[in-house]
Write a protein that binds this DNA or RNA. Structure first.
Lengths: 152, 152
DNA sequence: CCGAAATCATTGGCACAACCAACATTGGCT
DNA sequence: AGCCAATGTTGGTTGTGCCAATGATTTCGG
């Protein structure tokens, strides 16, 4: 074996400093925390996004949900099926436009959403544990600037 | 339609400020840039990781590669097959330990690696375009602190 | 020294996110 | 009326990160 080889989990220097690598790894950690946190309460990532949009913007069509949450239309259908089965949202045909369904969040849906909010806040805290409040804010601002640039 | 609904890509406030959301979206942008950049030169993400480890640590076994790059052993096999087919790495049985293959990077592999380095640097630049050099460094430091915490 | 346990390369498959294609129905425009 | 766009839905594809099992080989405990 090569003497220079740390042998262990010594990540190559070429990767260690690259933002794309760091973001990729951070996403891995974040996803793991999310999926284990959400899995414990029997939901998946899309569910939260949809409930959040419904709670904030009020009843709307599935196409609107797809646009505001970035979830693909076909995935919206599947997620809404699961949410409706648990009575967390209500699907009703729109009388004015018979192509559309009007989706609205139920009282149980709102309760579930606030419960998920707590779960999610706990996850943020574990994810950013080594950072101070100021540093967390810094990270949020920097990422937000990057994203805003790539969305326009 | 609800009057409060931006209708457009108005992301719910619950999501907009959450680090996990920002990281998730940043990963989406990063991945898109990477896959289009790497795709243009006919490689995939794993290839770069393996070449980087081989160039930095010298010849080693596939299991060592798996450990240093975080790539699963089974995926290392597949990626090395493709790299060996292009003569970018060499697979040789290890005489001292007949379970192992000794993997080494070729001259062509090093050339490919430096070419990919340039591609990758360009991608970092496009990804972090709206940030100053100091801010980029800040972002790297913050993410690195977070990751170091979750790897130990 | 010998059997048990660990290590290595390899094959195969699984789950999940993200996306895309097609389609039938309905609405709006001219 | 006639054409184009939007909607909900079904079904499929791709890529990543995993995990399980297996045969060959080495290492370790007693």
């Amino acid at each position: 074996m090569n003497p220079a080889a740390g042998g262990e989990g010594a990540t190559p220097a070429r990767l260690r400093k690259r933002p794309t690598w760091l973001i990729n790894r951070a996403h891995g950690v974040s996803y793991k925390l999310l999926s284990e946190g959400f899995g414990a309460v029997g939901t998946h990532g899309y569910h939260y996004r949809l409930l959040a949009a419904l709670a904030e913007f009020g009843p709307c069509s599935q196409a609107d949900l797809a646009r505001s949450t970035g979830v693909d239309g076909s995935d919206v259908v599947a997620a809404l099926n699961e949410l409706a089965e648990q009575r967390l949202v209500k699907r009703a045909p729109d009388a004015a436009d018979r192509r559309r369904n009007t989706i609205s969040i139920t009282a149980a849906g709102r309760r579930r959403l606030t419960a998920l909010d707590d779960v999610l806040d706990g996850i943020q805290d574990r994810l950013l544990a080594p950072l101070s409040a100021a540093e967390r804010q810094q990270l949020v601002v920097l990422l937000d600037r990057v994203l805003q640039h790539h969305e326009s």
